[in-house]
Nucleic acid binder design. Structure first.
Length: 428
DNA sequence: AATCCTGCAACTAGTAATCC
DNA sequence: GGATTACTAGTTGCAGGATT
């Protein structure tokens, strides 16, 4: 339509939406005097309001409405709260709900619709899941402040994935109105997927956990009166068995043979050998810097500690350790006294894991982590104390005095490892 | 002591980039 | 132009600490 020289977009609001939008018609200036331009500018608006009135964008609409009453509330100086009056509630509760509203209303002669809605509590609170997620990220800023891009992605993607998985099941779900029933219905759906074999119980539980974490935090801060519908919702997981079993000595021999003939790059081969004889994880080995590698002196060893590449090591404290280099690990490390530039970067550990596992797939279906389990088993079988095993692996020892001293000396650790490897040769 | 909760890292599959 | 290697996104396992 044209008003004077300027064209306007105009649209009647269906009565069903008048309360939410707070007006009877939409009138927006297109800021142009040209018909052609006006037509082009109006197209997205037509589309937008079509969708709104058809209902498939109702959450957007609701958010707008919510913002509007909140602003109106502030204008007239009240704190907005949706009206909560129920037939079965005690009378005095209902009166208490209404009385302050009447008082507020009485103070004014004539009020615009938004202000009336604000006082009447006409608009329910709404929080689409996507917004809850944003809010959660905002509230947890501290968790990603000093992460690399990759680490940041790895942290947040699962949350996004959890939300979008949930939304596929419950399109347009509103975080404030879903209840325990909905949570359990979703749980049921997850169990179906587990039965179908598309995901593991552990994965399903993590999806539930992430939804729970999001709502827990957001509710705690913004909606303290709301109960988290996911609290305590989980799926029994009896997977139990060891999924990454240790390598057998037969497999170790086969891998050794493979390494001698393989055309894989030397850095990768060296990393595999070091993993094989130290039980260090591939990320730990990849990120070693020159200063972390000690080849002169009585006991050559590597230090797993924070450095430029590595801001922190998993679980901090106990994981920081020195591991003596024995057997072929020492030769391999001598080849690369300054570490492995090829893999010393964001993601390097994952690349090594993928490459090494692919290489070893020829002779085994086990993976890099099985080196670690093998070392642990060898140490145990050779009679090493648990605390020694933990010191070499970088585990915390339960109940052991983490407060005392620096733990085992390098010499003791080397003895333990050598004993363990000698045991294999003698066929124990 | 067992189980739950959580963070971190390994692993996989699919795809993209690079090499030869 | 096919093979190899790396990257990315997503899943799963491991371990520590909290809770029951």
């Amino acid at each position: 339509m044209r008003r004077g020289e300027i064209y306007y977009f105009r649209r009647v609001v269906p009565s069903s939406h008048r309360s939410l939008l707070g007006k009877r018609e939409i009138l927006i200036s297109l800021r142009t005097r040209a018909v052609g331009e006006a037509l082009i500018l109006s197209a997205p608006l037509i589309d937008k309001y079509d969708r709104l009135f058809r209902g498939d964008a109702s959450s957007e609409l609701a958010i707008e409405a919510q913002d509007r009453v909140h602003i109106a509330s502030r204008r007239i100086g009240i704190k907005y709260k949706p009206l909560d009056v129920r037939r079965d509630a005690p009378l005095e509760d209902n009166l208490a709900e209404i009385a302050p509203r009447v008082a507020a209303f009485a103070g004014f002669q004539k009020l615009p619709l938004a202000e009336l809605q604000a006082i009447a509590g006409d608009i329910p609170f709404r929080l689409p899941f996507s917004q809850a997620l944003e809010r959660y990220q905002e509230l947890s800023r501290d968790k990603w402040l000093n992460l690399s891009q990759r680490e940041r992605d790895k942290k947040w993607r699962p949350f996004e994935a959890a939300v979008s998985h949930f939304l596929r099941f419950y399109p347009n779900a509103d975080a404030l109105s879903i209840g325990r029933k909905d949570a359990y219905r979703y749980r049921h759906h997850l169990i179906d997927e587990i039965v179908a074999g598309s995901i593991k119980a552990d994965t399903a539980n993590k999806k539930l956990m992430r939804l729970r974490m999001i709502l827990e935090k957001v509710f705690e801060v913004d909606y303290p009166e709301n109960q988290n519908p996911f609290r305590g919702v989980r799926i029994k997981d009896d997977a139990g068995k060891r999924a990454r079993p240790p390598f057998s000595e037969v497999e170790i021999d086969a891998i050794q043979k493979l390494l001698r003939t393989s055309s894989a790059n030397d850095q990768l081969k060296a990393i595999i050998k070091i993993g094989m004889f130290t039980g260090a994880t591939c990320k730990e080995i990849c990120l070693l810097e020159e200063a972390d590698i000690v080849l002169d002196g009585d006991i050559p060893h590597i230090k797993i500690q924070p450095n430029d590449q590595r801001h922190k090591v998993k679980s901090g404290g106990a994981r920081h350790r020195e591991i003596p280099l024995v057997g072929e690990a020492l030769e391999a490390m001598r080849q690369f006294p300054a570490g492995f530039p090829r893999y010393r970067r964001d993601n390097g550990g994952e690349v090594v894991s993928a490459a090494a596992n692919k290489l070893m797939a020829v002779v085994t279906d086990k993976t890099f982590y099985s080196f670690r389990h093998r070392i642990a088993d060898l140490l145990r079988n050779s009679g090493a104390q648990d605390s020694m095993k933990d010191a070499i692996m970088g585990h915390t020892t339960r109940g052991m005095g983490m407060h005392y001293g620096a733990g085992f000396t390098l010499e003791k650790k080397r003895e333990a490892l050598e004993t363990a490897f000698r045991n294999i040769e003698s066929g124990l």
